[in-house]
Write a protein that binds this DNA or RNA. Structure first.
Lengths: 255, 255
DNA sequence: CGCTCACTTGAAAGTCGTCAATAGGTGTGG
DNA sequence: CCACACCTATTGACGACTTTCAAGTGAGCG
């Protein structure tokens, strides 16, 4: 447990960095998008660049639309959502992010972030300067390749989400696909993926999937009555992964 | 007009490359994602690497799910769709691509393409080897930055599409947003963007937007009756861009 | 000239969104 | 420790929108 020190504004990264010590030497986080920068020479050999750590309190934003893009960031602990607010002020969730995920890469386009990243619970992020990242990629083909792969990971996530818009994909299927995907990602991050505690509200799930929060609630009930999952508030237990997969319609994984 | 020579299979890039001459010296395509590689030193100075050209006949695929990812590719002329087929064989459109767009970057993740790229009409693509691209990015920070920006462009396009899933975004709004976005991209590519001839069918639009083809047809009629557009088959004329923008709900652009 | 494919248009049925009321959970403050 | 307020989640009823099924028209191509 952390005893939260006086929390600085998370909006702009603290110039000098937090007094959080660097990662315990040789203990890379599982499947992190910053891994190529963090441990470019393999386990045990720390990075030659400064990777700063930063805490973000629940509900605070790591960055907001319009903020300058100066850092490559990855979630270390906790969960984030990224949202875009339309002209009416209603916010549209475009993604949820768990430990290891890179954040805000869309900012590379114009040097400004295109969305807000908001912590769903108290969280920590790892931060490398863009400049350092570029430098390292130029020095090592291996680092570059790893970094490109991290980009592609983000891209692939977006493409997977496009499948939610499939012809007549029903609400129940969407939720099933979401849960399956979330579980898969938790697993990839080395976190428990069968007994899940969702960090987001029904409304936020609904926003991502294009459904009303009531529909999400009803679909949880339906999937539970089918025996695919057990639901108690935000605690989800995946009882029958096969049944859940059958409810969704992901394309064949292996190819 | 091209008089199509005997068309080789487009599936695997021809090892030796097509006999198409390189771009006319010093005439970069407008807003191309490969520009940083094609003209790294500015206009007039050709690239030090080989950028091969390739033709793809209408209906043929540039690559398919599972193909090795070995090249960075950009549309030169014509239009493409990228699709993912689910287990049942129905294909889900995840994007349309016009001249300048990079194609198949998701393949960087596992070294295999995750979707199929299919030409909507006879098309040409520019192809650079991954190896060369990496090499050039390592040699020049400027090239690297440009290339990263191209990545981010693709990413941003996906995020924009996530807005289609906004709370209660109606079919008509979705189509309006699609047309607006398509027009904007045509404009960025230096193509006519008010008198449009859509390269895709109603069904394909519907697939992208998560709507039935009949709904697309009806929404075209509605938008026409509103006076926002004129429709004749695939020819669309944007009469009142403001009205069209009002039908959609994009977030404030500049802000 | 006739075929096929794309598109249009109509009617019926189903799903989901909205509105509303209620219950449960959490956190704060007395 | 309890009470209160607030937020989140559940559940029901109704209405609107979209899908589906169907038939028919039009355009492009061999």
């Amino acid at each position: 447990m952390f005893d939260m020190p006086t929390q600085p504004h998370a909006g702009e990264p603290a110039p000098a960095g937090e007094p959080v010590p660097p990662l315990e030497a040789g203990r890379p986080c599982a499947a992190c998008g910053l891994l190529p920068l963090c441990f470019p020479h393999g386990r045990g050999v720390p990075a030659p660049i400064a990777i700063r750590h930063q805490r973000v309190a629940k509900g605070d934003s790591l960055f907001r639309r319009g903020d300058s893009f100066l850092h490559v960031q990855a979630v270390k602990t906790g969960y984030f959502k990224t949202v875009i607010s339309d002209r009416l002020g209603t916010e549209q969730v475009i993604g949820f992010h768990l430990p290891g995920d890179l954040l805000g890469l869309d900012g590379m386009l114009h040097g400004q972030h295109g969305c807000d990243a908001i912590a769903l619970e108290d969280a920590e992020v790892c931060v490398a300067s863009c400049f350092d990242a570029g430098e390292m990629c130029r020095q090592s083909a291996q680092v570059q390749e790893g970094f490109w792969r991290s980009f592609a990971q983000v891209l692939t996530g977006h493409e997977r989400r496009a499948l939610l818009l499939g012809q007549g994909v029903q609400a129940q299927q969407r939720l099933a696909m979401f849960l399956e995907d979330w579980s898969r990602r938790l697993r990839a991050a080395g976190l428990p993926h069968q007994e899940i505690v969702l960090p987001m509200t029904r409304q936020e799930i609904g926003s991502l999937l294009g459904l009303a929060l009531e529909t999400i609630s009803r679909c949880f009930a339906k999937l539970e009555s089918k025996g695919a999952i057990e639901v108690r508030q935000r605690s989800i237990r995946i009882v029958d992964a096969k049944l859940l997969a059958g409810a969704g319609l992901w394309p064949g994984e292996g190819g």
